[in-house]
C-alpha cells in the first residue's frame, strides 16, 4: 500500500482527512465507507475496555468511561494483538488523566480489575501439600515461598476492596463506613474462581517481601519493622489458601 501510514493515522484521528487512493462503488461515499473502519477500531477498543473494567464503568458512568477510554485508545493504542496488555495500561493512564484524578481511588479499583483478568489467564502451578507439611514441621521462617502465578497484590491508600465489591456485578452501593487504606490480594483458586480479598497491612508487606525473594522470616521482620501489626499465622494460612509454593526448605539443618 502506498500510504498505509496515512490510513493508520486516520483510523485513530477523527479529524484527519480520509486517506487518498480509496475507491467506493458508484453512489457510495468514500468518507462514509472509511468511517466504518474508524468506528470498528475506536469503538471496538472502547468496548473491549468496558468489558474489562465493569466496576470502573459503574463508578464513573458510561459517558465518562467512554470519553476517557477514547482518549486512551487514541493516545496509547494497543501494541499487541493480545488485548490484556492494553487493558493493563489503562489504570496508569487514569492516574495521568486529569478528569479521573478527581476520583482518587479510581485507578486503584481499575488495578483490581486488571489483576483479575491477569489472574484468570496466569500459569497453572501444581500444589505441593507435602512440601508445606514438611516446612510446617521444620523451620518455616527460613523457607522461601513463591506466590501462586495468579496472585496479584494491589496496594492503595484508599478502601479499594470495599469500593470494588460495591461496584462489582451484583454489588450494592452504600456509603463507605470506614474510609481506610486497603490492599487487595487477587488470586485464582483450585476451582478457577477469581478472588479479591483485603490483605491486612502486615500481610501485604510480607507478600511483597516473599515476591522479592526474602525468606518468610525476613519478610515478616520487615512487616514488624514497618510498625504495623502482623498476624503471622494468618499470613501462613493465607499463603496456603492462595496456593503459594514452598520453594526452598532450608529447614532445621540450616540453623
Amino acid at each position: 500500500m502506498r500510504d498505509r501510514a496515512a490510513f493508520a493515522h486516520a483510523l485513530l484521528d477523527a479529524h484527519a482527512p480520509t486517506p487518498q487512493g480509496l475507491r467506493a462503488s458508484k453512489g457510495a461515499s468514500i468518507d462514509a465507507r472509511f468511517a466504518v473502519y474508524r468506528n470498528n477500531v475506536v469503538s471496538g477498543l472502547i468496548d473491549a475496555l468496558e468489558d474489562s473494567f465493569p466496576a470502573t464503568l459503574r463508578i464513573v458512568g458510561p459517558d465518562f468511561f467512554r470519553a476517557m477510554a477514547q482518549v486512551f485508545v487514541q493516545n496509547a493504542p494497543p501494541r499487541r494483538a493480545v488485548l490484556r496488555a492494553f487493558a493493563h495500561g489503562f489504570p496508569a493512564f487514569m492516574d495521568s488523566f486529569p478528569p479521573a484524578q478527581e476520583i482518587a481511588y479510581l485507578a486503584d479499583v481499575a488495578r483490581i480489575e486488571a489483576a483479575r483478568i491477569e489472574a484468570f489467564h496466569a500459569a497453572d502451578c501444581d500444589e505441593d501439600a507435602e512440601a508445606w507439611a514438611r516446612a510446617m514441621s521444620g523451620d518455616l521462617s527460613s523457607a522461601r515461598i513463591a506466590l501462586h502465578p495468579s496472585a496479584r497484590l494491589v496496594r492503595s491508600h484508599h478502601p479499594i476492596v470495599t469500593i470494588w465489591r460495591m461496584n462489582a456485578r451484583d454489588g450494592v452501593i452504600a456509603p463507605v463506613e470506614n474510609w481506610t487504606a486497603e490492599h487487595a490480594l487477587v488470586y485464582r483458586d483450585a476451582n478457577d474462581a477469581i478472588h479479591v480479598e483485603q490483605a491486612p497491612n502486615g500481610a501485604a508487606t510480607i507478600l511483597s517481601g516473599l515476591r522479592n525473594g526474602e525468606t518468610l522470616g525476613d519478610a515478616a521482620g520487615q512487616a514488624i519493622d514497618s510498625a504495623s501489626e502482623s498476624d503471622l499465622t494468618g499470613v501462613i494460612l493465607l499463603l496456603m489458601r492462595t496456593r503459594a509454593t514452598i520453594l526452598a526448605e532450608t529447614g532445621a539443618k540450616a540453623r
Binding site: 500500500m1 493508520a8 473502519y37 477500531v41 494497543p78 501494541r79 494483538a81
Partner: peptide
C-alpha cells in the same frame, strides 16, 4: 491490523 507497532484490532483492507 498493525502498523508501526500499533494494533488496530480490526481486519483492515489491502490493495
Amino acid at each position: 491490523s498493525t502498523h508501526e507497532g500499533a494494533f488496530f484490532n480490526d481486519l483492515l483492507p489491502l490493495p
